[in-house]
Amino acid sequence: MNALPPVSVPRTVLTHLVTGLADDTAHKTLQTWTPGNVVHLGDAFGTVLAWMWRTDPGLAVVAISTVLSQLRKWDELATPKITLDVLLAGLPFAIANLSDEELDDMVTTLRREVPRHFEAAQNATE
């Protein structure tokens, strides 16, 4: 398979693409997840998340915050049983192309930064 050449995407378009991917990922995850099982966000989301982590870590935080908001509150199947800890525990199953060190750094950053974004999003809409 030939690699496609990189394309430049306006920031607003990239934000919409990431939001759409996060919303779709959350909905598909909720359709298959059962309490007590690992939350697997899927390989497609994991590939994009790894790319975001390497190119724009702040966007990776926004993506996970958006997924968590959908999983816990906004999706029609939302459940508060999926916490940030539950979500992060399953993250390694979705990400195959980061080193252990990169994954550890990402999880540490997400654990620190996502609550701020998540709480701000929740407070802004209540």
Rank of each mutant, 00 (worst) to 15 (best):
R11D: 11
L59N: 10
Q31S: 15
M52S: 11
D43L: 14
M106I: 10
A3T: 00
H27R: 14
D75T: 05
I64Q: 03
D24P: 00
A22G: 13
S69V: 03
G36V: 10
N37R: 14
D23S: 09
H40M: 03
G58P: 00
N97D: 12
D43W: 15
P80E: 07
L98W: 07
F93A: 15
W33N: 03
L88T: 11
S8F: 14
V86H: 10
H16N: 14
F93N: 13
S99V: 02
L41F: 03
I95M: 05
L71M: 10
L21Q: 04
L98N: 09
R11T: 09
D105R: 15
T34M: 10
V61T: 01
V67E: 02
R11H: 07
M106S: 09
W74P: 00
V107P: 04
W51C: 02
G20E: 08
I82V: 15
W74Q: 11
L103V: 03
D75M: 07
L77T: 00
D104E: 15
T108P: 01
A50I: 11
A22R: 05
W33Q: 04
Q31K: 13
Q31A: 15
V61C: 03
P80W: 00
M106H: 10
M52N: 09
N97F: 05
A22T: 08
I95T: 02
R54K: 12
L87S: 02
V13F: 08
G46W: 06
W33C: 07
E76G: 11
L84R: 08
L41S: 06
H16T: 12
A44L: 14
L87W: 04
A3M: 00
T25Q: 02
T32D: 12
S65E: 06
T12E: 11
T55C: 10
M52H: 11
V62K: 10
S8D: 11
G20F: 04
W33F: 09
H27W: 10
W53E: 05
L4N: 08
P80V: 06
F45E: 04
I64M: 14
S8Q: 13
T47A: 15
T108R: 13
T34I: 14
L17W: 06
S65G: 12
P5R: 07
T47C: 14
S99D: 07
V62S: 14
D104M: 13
A94K: 09
I64L: 13
I82N: 01
R11I: 06
A94L: 09
